[in-house]
Amino acid sequence: MSTIKVKVNGKLVEAKVTGNMRLLDLVRDTLHLTATKEGCSIGECGACTVIMDGNAVCSCLVLAGQCDEAEITTLEGLNDNPLTQKLQAAFVEKGGVQCGFCTPGVLVSTTALLSKHPQPSDEQLKDALEGNICRCTGYQPIIDSVHHALES
């Protein structure tokens, strides 16, 4: 058992973690931030995506101990982000959200991309979303939603 200090959604958190505790477990079970979903547990689906030090990562692949002194942002931490709010509205309007299971990870991945590339090419957008599996939309409504958010 070790103690880490991590900034989560802007708040400094001190947490006791075991050697095999994942960032996903810290976020969901310890901090009760449940927008981050557990899907595949092997980094394939993107449902557990969070932003770690400015980069979108699958929290199921990161050990909590690796997050000491890191800055983590979950979807809850993006609630007041104007860009994320535009994305959420566009996803509803353009059908980028259907069953909703993948949506938190997709929104986090997209927000991370747009914070670095405010006007991404379709290729950059597809690259950013390649780690997010969506079985409902066929992806085009997600891409259309992002473009709609950028136009508004």
Rank of each mutant, 00 (worst) to 15 (best):
K116D: 05
E151H: 15
I42C: 10
T49N: 02
P120R: 03
Q66M: 13
T103S: 13
D29C: 06
P141F: 07
E71F: 07
G138I: 10
S41D: 05
Q88F: 03
V106D: 00
L150D: 13
C134Y: 09
D53L: 07
K7F: 05
L114W: 00
I4W: 13
G96W: 01
E38D: 11
N55T: 11
L83R: 14
L129M: 09
C136P: 04
E71V: 11
G77I: 06
T74W: 00
S41V: 04
D127Y: 03
Q119C: 05
S145L: 02
L78V: 11
G95C: 09
G10E: 07
C67K: 00
Q124E: 15
M1A: 14
L26C: 07
L23M: 06
Q119H: 13
S115I: 05
I72S: 07
G96M: 08
L87H: 10
F91N: 06
S2V: 08
K126D: 10
D80G: 14
S115A: 11
G10M: 05
K86W: 01
C40L: 12
C102Q: 08
V97Q: 07
L63T: 02
V8Y: 02
I142K: 07
S109Y: 00
C134W: 08
N81M: 07
L114E: 02
S115R: 12
S59L: 03
L114D: 02
L150A: 13
E93K: 15
I42M: 12
G131L: 05
Q124W: 02
L107A: 10
E151D: 15
L87E: 04
L24K: 01
R22W: 04
L33D: 06
N9E: 06
E151C: 15
I51M: 00
I51H: 00
C67Y: 06
D53I: 07
C40F: 12
V17Y: 01
C134S: 08
K86P: 03
G54Y: 06
S115P: 04
K94V: 06
G19C: 10
L63V: 03
C99K: 13
A70P: 02
T36K: 07
Q140Y: 08
D53E: 06
R135G: 12
D25E: 15
E123D: 12
C40T: 14
C45T: 09
R28F: 05
G95L: 04
E76L: 07
D122P: 10
Q124V: 09
V50K: 00
F101M: 07
T49D: 00
L33S: 13
S2D: 09
C45S: 08
C134N: 08
E38G: 09
G95H: 14
H147C: 12
E38M: 08
G65F: 07
N55D: 15
I4Y: 13
E69W: 09
C48I: 05
H32N: 09
V27W: 02
C99M: 11
T74G: 06
E69D: 10
L24S: 03
L114P: 08
A47K: 01
K37P: 05
I142S: 01
G43A: 06
T18K: 15
L23S: 03
Q140A: 08
E123H: 12
L12F: 09
N79T: 07
G96C: 13
T137V: 11
S2H: 10
C67R: 01
R22N: 03
C99R: 12
K5Q: 14
L75Y: 05
